[in-house]
Design a protein around this nucleic acid. Structure first.
Lengths: 153, 153
DNA sequence: TCCTTTTGGTTCGATATCGCACCATTTAGT
DNA sequence: ACTAAATGGTGCGATATCGAACCAAAAGGA
């Protein structure tokens, strides 16, 4: 007899976790967008941040995968960033189908300014989790994210 | 000289955490919606689940607050659920402006079926975090959520 | 009681998100 | 080389999301 579910309550905990994650996502999104200029939206900021943290010159598809959004969504996000002059789309020398996303000077400055203007907000609750707890949570979530990603086939 | 930021790297960790949370949210959303019938969307399921976990008879505004979404979004979500016959909107006997959201039998059944059909997916990675790790993460995130919520004034 | 403010909810318009279909290139198979 | 399949990206239409403005009921003063 196949053991399909040895610990059903575990599922409930995962549901709870996803629920909590959804709410925090909501809260952080709202907080961010309240600070960002007019129509600037969280995904746009996230992309800029990613390009700085990792490296610019990524392709749109790489970005879509990194954030686990459909590529059409990324196209839209990048179009917004380009219209604001925060990124620059160039042809990919290695593949004529593909493009590369590069930060402009304005893009880098924008990110620095945004971080600075966001700092006070983060400061309002940054004492909630200690450094160890934070890194612990991040590590666990990262582990979960990679497993979920892998399970996605 | 005022100490505005005693530990700047902490902010970076929070950014990282929010980033990770955003991606997992994305992944769970996509996974859920792949299983749910046609146009059914994650927030709708989340509301049903909440009504069962907590108690139905909540008002739309209570739900909006619970999920930290604007009330207009909740109106829309509830309209979708009502159109599918999964919830029922009744007048609030205590307040003529307000309404109450009640689950229908179809709504309860729907939730049970959805959970069942989702179980295999969760099973694909449910061994990633142990029960202790899970409850630990949930507890920490819950703590953070409440603090962020409070900081929202 | 009358008037002001607050609160619960919806309507409306603007934008974001995403699936589907499509095109151009690249890769793989023969 | 030639064709078939896979890959990177976009256009389009349908829906989701959300802020602003609005309405009706309730709460709070005077």
């Amino acid at each position: 007899m196949p053991e399909t579910n040895a610990a059903p309550e575990l599922n409930g905990l995962y549901f709870q976790l996803f629920n909590e994650i959804g709410i925090i996502n909501q809260l952080s999104r709202a907080a961010f967008e309240a600070r960002l200029p007019d129509g600037m939206v969280l995904p746009q900021f996230a992309v800029i941040n990613h390009l700085i943290r990792v490296e610019d010159g990524r392709t749109p598809l790489q970005l879509a995968r990194a954030f686990q959004v459909p590529k059409t969504s990324m196209t839209h996000t990048l179009a917004g960033l380009e219209k604001r002059g925060l990124v620059e789309m160039r042809a990919n020398p290695d593949d004529a189908r593909s493009k590369q996303v590069w930060l402009t000077e304005a893009g880098r400055k924008f990110r620095d300014d945004a971080i600075a203007s966001l700092a006070p907000d983060v400061g309002a609750f940054s004492d909630t989790l200690g450094r160890e707890e934070l890194t612990e949570v991040i590590a666990l979530l990262e582990r979960l994210r990679k497993r979920m990603d892998a399970a996605r086939d």
